[in-house]
Design a protein around this nucleic acid. Structure first.
Length: 302
DNA sequence: GCGTCCAGGTCTACC
DNA sequence: GGTAGACCTGGACGC
């Protein structure tokens, strides 16, 4: 089938670095995202509201420019292009103002590298729905399993674009499946009823999770609301808050605990209280500072 | 090949 | 409010 290509260029903030944004978390490896480490590109297969499916590939260009190559089987209209640009802006957090964070870090020379690199952002999904489902799928399992379940969700319930590329399923599509199917085919295990219940609430219009992005609630109150989703506990709620751009909580998981003990505890086990105390001086930015501290080695070796 | 452990936790029952 | 035990999957590991 014939594929149509379109090139788009986006202006990015002065303090933004594309590859450190992509590379700072494992989210870039969860379908329908994929990356090419050698070419330093991030791709995503995405279903537009017009019903068209596109594959978008992002890469950095000189200056404050992000290049976007979009492939589609159908001609794209102005509204399609605007939607694609919006998806990219959301995924890369181009509209997240981190200037006050960088000003705050000026008091911490150990973190000067963050501003120098343009680090601080990490990718997320274009919808809160997708981020919540993926977060639930990341709990109490290996990262390999999280990737496998995300892949199966797309492959089995998403819209196919090519032989091996599919979109992330919509809430309606996920809501229409059964717990048994989710267990047997997607192999999401005991998380299956949680995911389906969440999708059904959204599909029925009983829950507007996109509103969380602009919620006027303080983070503690918003966290309580997020935790009303079954399958989302303390860690997952903290992680979702980070994806929403709120960093007042640490989102401690077993990987972070192990990493902290390697970096700051000489390999000795450290308690959550000790980790909390270590990052307490960073106030509302502590969750972001913790994350950057843990992935520093990965980023400065880029 | 087989059994066990555990990983980027959460829920429920019980005290 | 704190804690124990159950819960899916799948890779790593020891035997």
């Amino acid at each position: 089938m014939k594929h149509l290509n379109r090139s788009i260029q986006l202006q990015v903030p002065r303090d933004f670095d594309f590859w450190s944004t992509v590379w700072s978390s494992g989210w870039c490896g969860l379908a329908p995202f994929s990356f090419d480490e050698e070419r330093r590109t991030l791709s995503r297969v995405h279903g537009l509201t017009s019903g068209k499916t596109v594959e978008m590939t992002m890469m950095a260009r000189r200056g404050r420019v992000l290049a976007l190559e979009v492939e589609s089987r159908e001609e794209l209209g102005k509204a399609d292009v605007e939607e694609i640009e919006g998806v990219v802006r959301t995924c890369l957090r181009l509209d997240e103002d981190l200037s006050s964070f960088f000003e705050f870090l000026e008091g911490y020379p150990d973190f000067a590298w963050v501003r120098e690199m343009g680090a601080g952002r990490s990718i997320r999904s274009p919808t809160v729905f997708e981020d919540v489902v993926k977060t639930i799928c990341s709990t109490n399992c290996s990262w390999a399993l999280t990737k496998a379940v995300s892949g199966r969700l797309c492959r089995i319930l998403g819209e196919p674009y090519s032989e091996d590329l599919c979109t992330f399923p919509t809430p309606h599509r996920m809501a229409s499946t059964t717990e048994e199917f989710m267990r047997k085919e997607v192999k999401a295990g005991y998380r299956s009823p949680y995911i389906i219940e969440f999708a059904r609430k959204l599909a029925a219009g009983g829950l507007d999770v996109e509103a969380w992005r602009t919620s006027s609630l303080d983070s503690a109150s918003l966290k309580r609301e997020i935790m009303r989703v079954r399958g989302v506990g303390d860690y997952a709620a903290d992680h979702i808050l980070k994806l929403l751009g709120r960093y007042d909580f640490l989102a401690l998981d077993s990987w972070l605990r192990r990493r902290f003990s390697q970096i700051h505890g000489n390999g000795e086990t450290t308690s959550d209280r000790e980790i909390e105390e270590y990052y307490a001086p960073f106030g509302r930015w502590k969750g972001l500072v913790l994350w950057l501290d843990m992935v520093k080695e990965r980023l400065i070796n880029l």
